[in-house]
Design a binder for these strands. Structure first.
Length: 259
DNA sequence: GTAATTTGACCAGA
DNA sequence: TCTGGTCAAATTAC
């Protein structure tokens, strides 16, 4: 029922492993570049979050080899109904040395609270499109360790905003193919939702058979994907508005860190 | 002026 | 009654 996701997870794991390896190498070589670390942290966080998205649809996470693996929390002992009246939401933890800022979604902070069991405050975020698109995804970020600092991000609920924004009835899903959609940059669409080719600020992968969308927003790291060579390497030339269908996600094996 | 963040109050579950 | 999560008015940033 979740076709191709296992392969996608494998590909993501490969990417994460590569990023980890390269980070280790660079740490020993220490070039003059000072912006490398945030770049790699972003890469690792993006991979980890993508994995957590898949894990949210697949009860068996595929992240045993990940250093920053998301930790599914099976169920809260007493799931408290949220403001939308939903209960029993699965939540996922993700620990990282830095707070995850660009984790593919737009969040709006709605609260901050001192937690009794911790000396650090906990921040509460909800999807920026919670009202507009009836998206009930929320996340909590809290520093759980001082030295080295560890921030735990707990994702609760599922993003519905991109699904509502992208998918129209009888559209975008074709015969079990996965689709990457390229749209005009000058098309009037809400910012974090519409994937664009040039400049690449967001990209989205819609996986048929699920309602998962990987929507990678780069924020301050545009250089991550604003790379024509990347697209030319992996994708044939395409025009804005074109669709690309990937029958096999394992073919999506571009390795930007290959040297 | 508008949007985002802050912060104290409120609510519900344990 | 305590605590975590959310609300909403006030404040700040753009």
């Amino acid at each position: 029922m979740f076709h191709g996701v296992d392969r996608a997870v494998e590909a993501l794991l490969r990417g994460q492993e590569s990023a980890n390896r390269l980070k280790t190498v660079l740490e020993h070589q220490r070039t003059s570049s000072v912006s490398i670390e945030p770049l790699f942290d972003t890469v690792l966080d993006s991979f980890s979050f993508a994995l957590s998205l898949f894990a949210s649809s697949n009860p068996q996470p595929h992240c045993e080899s990940s250093q920053n693996k998301p930790t599914p929390v099976v169920a809260r002992k007493s799931p408290k109904k949220n403001s939308h009246g939903e209960e029993g939401l699965v939540q996922y933890n993700h620990d990282s040395p830095t707070p995850i800022c660009n984790d593919c979604f737009s969040w709006r902070k709605y609260g901050q609270k001192k937690i009794k069991t911790s000396s650090h405050q906990r921040c509460y975020y909800r999807c920026a499109y919670a009202k507009d698109r009836n998206c009930n995804a929320t996340k909590r970020v809290q520093q759980i360790q001082d030295s080295p600092s560890v921030y735990r991000t707990t994702y609760v609920g599922k993003h519905m905003c991109e699904v509502n924004a992208f998918l129209q009835p009888n559209e975008d899903i074709v015969n079990g193919s996965k689709m990457i959609r390229f749209d005009k940059t000058d098309q009037a669409m809400p910012d974090p939702v519409m994937p664009q080719l040039v400049p690449v600020e967001q990209e989205a992968i819609i996986i048929e058979g699920t309602d998962q969308i990987m929507n990678l927003e780069c924020g301050s790291n545009e250089f991550l994907v604003d790379d024509d060579q990347l697209w030319e390497y992996q994708f044939p030339p395409c025009s804005p508005g074109d669709f690309m269908f990937l029958d096999d996600l394992s073919e999506f094996d571009y390795n930007p860190f290959h040297v």
